[in-house]
Design a protein around this nucleic acid. Structure first.
Lengths: 227, 227
DNA sequence: AATATTATTTAGCTTTGCCTAAAAATTTTA
DNA sequence: TAAAATTTTTAGGCAAAGCTAAATAATATT
């Protein structure tokens, strides 16, 4: 249907749209895809013709619903194959990416659906990334406390259990809100307080605080399990 | 390492070398690959540069040892994937070809070896075609056509040379598959069609059909040789 | 507000792999 | 064995997807 190259652009745009609030620029894309800006411009024009992206010269790009659903289909395939490689073929989770990059472009509805079924319809790939279902819907993440995680993990805030105004004011001061990204820099052993990076600032959170912040995994550290 | 297109040429040359005694001509290749003779000529020059084929203008082409071993690697992948699709993903044997054509080009030594291991190192794919091992060696099997046998012989199906989906569906309808037992009840002299017993049913097979079914002897008749 | 810097686009070139039409070589046939 | 028929190759184009260098638009600086 679409070329591998086109699919890679859709996937890259999707990932960049997810990971940054701002629109997706030509240069960001060229960096992501290890290609030159001029090549990106060309491709964006092609993708816009095919109604897969909204593209305005000099003002970046975004996916149309059609483009987004195609991107999700690729991501679904990628993550299912990663799961297969790790669970069935003894791959390590740091070896799967390259091969999954190839497998994600195989075209066959039946293949994907049967693979999904064969694997037991997993919701998360070996990196903890969510696997969209056949309709392109991502699974719900279960809320977990920030205090459960380990150094190196990157997390998205999904809720706060202590609704006291002093706690909320504290969060406000540090610009922590819904969908804020946090990454854990270090954990003090004696009181389990965490040094956390938020928008290029590093702040210290007490155990009381980390127990009251619900997060979802954004990216898990490759370090061995904490416990 | 090599492009999909180059790999498809190698595979096609391999198959044509196997199936006809004569050398492989430009026009045979263009027919096999559904492409024009002029395109074939071009590609053969490229493949010759890369030492994958011996090519002499106007006099056809043959694989070098390097080309042959690459072709066998592709065929190995193709047949392993077909086995996977049928055994693990509920594909019918007449549905697998198209997808295997894509999967055979995935580049990853580890993937192929682990898949082979996962599947239990099968020797034959769902059509009964032999699967080369990692060194490119084909399992022994003597191909004899059902049409070579005589009344009273009992045989085991070991492969089917016409992989068209209509032929495979015909076999399915009569519940003939790999390892199915057949015994020859009678042979019509005028058109060499056979009346064959399969699981208590008797069915009529045309000469075309019996020439495309490979068998091994299960029990030979004590009658005199047919020929 | 004008200029400098940076980002983006355009223009023109390359390679792969396909095409058609024309030319050349081989094979067939008379 | 020479002409006719067929096969193969060459020549010249096209589209995808990349590149570099030059031009242009947007943003930042003073």
């Amino acid at each position: 249907m679409y070329s591998q190259s086109e699919e890679n652009y859709l996937k890259a745009i999707y990932h960049l749209e997810e990971s940054s609030e701002k629109g997706v620029s030509t240069s960001k894309l060229s960096e992501e895809l290890q290609t030159k800006a001029a090549s990106v411009t060309e491709m964006l024009k092609r993708l816009a013709e095919k109604k897969l992206v909204n593209y305005q010269k000099y003002y970046g790009v975004s996916l149309t619903p059609k483009g987004k659903s195609w991107a999700l289909a690729i991501i679904r395939k990628h993550r299912l194959w990663e799961y297969f490689l790790v669970e069935c073929l003894n791959f390590n989770w740091d070896e799967v990416h390259e091969v999954a990059e190839q497998l994600e472009h195989i075209q066959s509805k039946k293949l994907v659906e049967e693979l999904d079924c064969f694997l037991g319809r997993p919701s998360f790939d070996p990196h903890g990334d969510p696997i969209p279902n056949a309709a392109g819907v991502l699974p719900e993440f279960k809320k977990r406390r920030l205090s459960e995680f380990k150094v190196g993990d990157t997390l998205i805030c999904k809720g706060f259990s202590d609704a006291s105004s002093s706690f909320l004011q504290f969060l406000d001061q540090h610009k922590i809100g819904l969908d804020t990204l946090l990454s854990i820099k270090s954990i003090q052993e004696f009181d389990e307080s965490m040094l956390v990076k938020v928008r290029n600032n590093e702040i210290m959170l007490s155990k009381t605080a980390t127990q009251n912040i619900f997060v979802e995994i954004y990216k898990e550290s490759k370090l061995k399990e904490k416990v």
